[in-house]
Simulated scan of single mutants.
Amino acid sequence: MDGIRAEKVVVLDSIQGRNFRGKLPPDETLGFKLETNEQRLVGSVVRGLDYFTSGSVVDGLGAAILARCQMRKSLGTLCVTWPEFGGSAMLMVKSVLREVLPEVEFGGGLLGFDRIRDPLFESDLYT
């Protein structure tokens, strides 16, 4: 990770039900964000998501990357979605990516979003 020098970092991940404070509705798609202090000072790059619920936990690679950004005082955002799998979460991820990377075309399965159907091939980490 020492070799990567990004100006901004956006990580996409999913929420696991056991880590969320409160009850996650099984039939509703939710998305939240966490940001480094530096990102909050300059303004959010992801505008369509609320901040992650206080008392809830994100673990894994996405959380580790955001923690590293915070320690380095870098601009970083972690976006998490619920449910962990499924088309509705993928649509939310597409919308976040369109906002962050407006110059990239996401239609027609360019990044494989339209081909993912089997939960065995869907990762907890979307990137």
Rank of each mutant, 00 (worst) to 15 (best):
R72Q: 08
L91V: 11
M92Q: 11
L78Q: 03
R98G: 00
S88P: 03
P83L: 00
S74A: 15
L78A: 08
A89W: 01
S95K: 13
C69K: 05
L78T: 06
F85Y: 14
L91W: 14
C79W: 05
S74Y: 12
G76I: 00
C79D: 11
A89Q: 06
Q70V: 09
M92P: 02
C79P: 01
S95Y: 08
L78D: 10
S88H: 08
K73N: 11
S74V: 11
R72A: 09
A89I: 02
S88M: 06
V80F: 10
S95T: 03
M92D: 11
V96Q: 06
F85E: 10
K73L: 07
R72D: 04
T77R: 10
G86M: 02
S88F: 01
M71R: 15
S95L: 09
E84A: 03
L91T: 13
W82D: 00
C69E: 00
G86D: 04
Q70H: 07
M71A: 13
G87W: 15
W82K: 01
G76F: 07
L75D: 05
S74H: 15
K94M: 12
V96M: 05
C79T: 05
G87C: 13
T81M: 02
G86C: 02
E84L: 11
V93H: 11
G86K: 03
M92H: 12
E99K: 08
V93K: 08
M90N: 14
V96R: 01
L75T: 08
S74G: 10
G87E: 15
E84F: 02
L97V: 09
V80L: 10
F85L: 08
S95E: 13
M71C: 07
M71L: 15
T77E: 15
S88N: 08
A89T: 01
G76D: 06
T77N: 10
L75C: 02
M71D: 09
F85C: 05
G76V: 00
C69S: 09
V96H: 03
G86Q: 07
P83Q: 03
K94Q: 09
V93F: 12
W82T: 01
K94I: 11
M92A: 13
K73R: 15
V93P: 00
S95Q: 14
K73Y: 11
V96C: 00
R98W: 07
E99G: 02
W82L: 02
A89P: 00
Q70A: 09
G87H: 14
G87M: 14
S74C: 14
G87F: 13
M71E: 12
